[in-house]
Simulated scan of single mutants.
Amino acid sequence: MNREDAAPSQKDGNDDAARHLARLLPAPVTEDLSPEQFRRQKEILMNRIDADQATDPRRDSPAAAAPRPARRLLRPALLVPVSALALAGILAGGVALGTGDDHGTAAAASSAPAARGGNGLLHHLSTVALASDAPVVRDDQFVYTRSKVQAADITSGKAVLTPLHEEEVWSAQDPRPLKKLGMSRAEGEDNVINAPLGDDNGTPAGWTRPTYKWLATLSTDPDELLAYLYAHVTKDPDQETDQIVFEQIGSWLGGLMPPKTAAALYQAAAKIPGVKEVPNAKDAIGRSGLGIVREDTRYGDRSEWVFDKDNYSFLGSRDYLTKDTPWGKSGTLLSSSAEIEHGIVDKIGQAPEATRESPRKRQAS
């Protein structure tokens, strides 16, 4: 086969890889749309494409089921857990990935501590969560979260990290369909979080806008909750569904979580194949804690949740490559986060002063 004959097949593979990367990574800023609007509209479009392709009979053929050689980069998981829909579009631009970052090198991945089954820690986290006090959250209030985050951008063809920076998010708790879902603030710039494309009448509380009270409506039976997650996540024939569900649970951790829901999520996560515990993990600002991890061996990337060793509160997360890919070598950091504080406020722009006085006093969820 000559190069001309091989080119279309190679191009199709590259297009497929780019499609997966585009849907899971931050969108570039455009003049017509805010970053949040751009990312959310793109996500809706890709979900519709997935839904259309789900009925394609070729999906059942051996050729369609075979994993593609291209690797995807993870979405910036857990950036601001309960308000994650607001954040992916904020991250634009960045600096070249430096070799001095101890989380972003192949050596870091190869020297990671050996993992063991995560059932023990997850069951303990569940017990701690059940003992937490449930806050009162009114429909007219906002969940506030402040985090340090960074994530990879691959528009240059290589994984390029944004600088570590602080982000604040105010998420409306009104369950009714809303056209303005809250506000995010990063690097001194405020961005309104608007309803995504397709939600012309607003976005109600639910899967794509998980308010505190909506999360409290989820089943607290781990088996029922896990079945619900597997039924509702957006399937991807080129990604392990177990990993998709693991990432979905991770996107809801931290912040303000109903204690019973948090307990059930930990118990459900313990049932996902491949979930393990590591004794040492670090969040975006270097805080060391206990880790719950899962690796997608098909794509060669790994997600970690980090918990405080003393009070078992959620500290943050990180994601990195475990195989060499066109976008980076094994160990390349894809995203990391560190939750600094969270709370309930009465209006956008406010910060929970009581939380700031005791930033380590966080709900263990």
Score class of each variant (00 low, 15 high):
residue 205 A to Y: 01
residue 188 G to A: 08
residue 151 A to Y: 07
residue 218 L to D: 10
residue 289 G to M: 04
residue 333 L to N: 00
residue 3 R to G: 09
residue 30 T to K: 06
residue 258 P to Y: 10
residue 68 R to Q: 15
residue 29 V to P: 07
residue 92 A to R: 11
residue 30 T to Q: 10
residue 66 A to P: 12
residue 119 N to E: 15
residue 107 A to Q: 14
residue 246 F to L: 01
residue 181 L to K: 02
residue 253 L to C: 06
residue 317 S to Y: 03
residue 39 R to A: 11
residue 298 R to M: 11
residue 128 V to S: 08
residue 315 L to K: 04
residue 61 S to A: 07
residue 224 E to K: 11
residue 320 Y to E: 01
residue 160 V to Q: 10
residue 83 S to F: 04
residue 263 A to I: 08
residue 109 A to W: 10
residue 121 L to W: 06
residue 185 R to E: 03
residue 244 I to C: 00
residue 339 E to L: 14
residue 56 D to S: 07
residue 71 R to V: 09
residue 257 M to N: 06
residue 261 T to E: 12
residue 147 S to I: 02
residue 197 L to I: 01
residue 226 L to W: 05
residue 220 T to K: 11
residue 349 G to D: 05
residue 269 A to R: 09
residue 208 T to M: 04
residue 117 G to A: 15
residue 79 L to D: 14
residue 225 L to I: 08
residue 231 A to S: 10
residue 190 D to H: 04
residue 347 K to M: 02
residue 134 A to L: 12
residue 252 W to E: 04
residue 12 D to Q: 13
residue 328 G to W: 02
residue 220 T to S: 11
residue 112 A to G: 07
residue 86 A to H: 10
residue 13 G to Y: 11
residue 316 G to Q: 02
residue 223 D to E: 09
residue 287 R to G: 01
residue 285 I to Y: 01
residue 100 G to R: 09
residue 66 A to C: 14
residue 322 T to M: 10
residue 79 L to H: 12
residue 318 R to A: 05
residue 95 V to E: 15
residue 355 T to S: 12
residue 7 A to C: 07
residue 308 D to G: 03
residue 267 Q to R: 14
residue 82 V to L: 11
residue 324 D to K: 05
residue 28 P to V: 07
residue 324 D to P: 02
residue 55 T to Y: 15
residue 106 A to P: 05
residue 323 K to N: 12
residue 359 P to K: 08
residue 309 K to L: 05
residue 332 T to G: 01
residue 118 G to M: 13
residue 253 L to V: 05
residue 252 W to S: 06
residue 56 D to K: 02
residue 147 S to Q: 12
residue 203 T to D: 01
residue 236 D to T: 01
residue 176 R to P: 03
residue 46 M to F: 15
residue 196 P to Y: 05
residue 54 A to P: 00
residue 207 W to D: 08
residue 89 G to V: 01
residue 68 R to N: 12
residue 133 D to G: 15
residue 324 D to L: 02
residue 301 D to E: 09
residue 45 L to N: 13
residue 42 K to V: 10
residue 93 G to V: 09
residue 247 E to G: 04
residue 297 T to F: 10
residue 104 G to P: 04
residue 25 L to T: 13
residue 60 D to H: 10
residue 66 A to H: 15
residue 146 R to M: 15
residue 263 A to Q: 09
residue 301 D to P: 00
residue 56 D to G: 02
residue 212 Y to M: 04
residue 148 K to Q: 15
residue 328 G to D: 03
residue 168 E to N: 11
residue 81 P to V: 11
residue 342 H to Y: 12
residue 282 K to M: 13
residue 330 S to P: 00
residue 11 K to I: 13
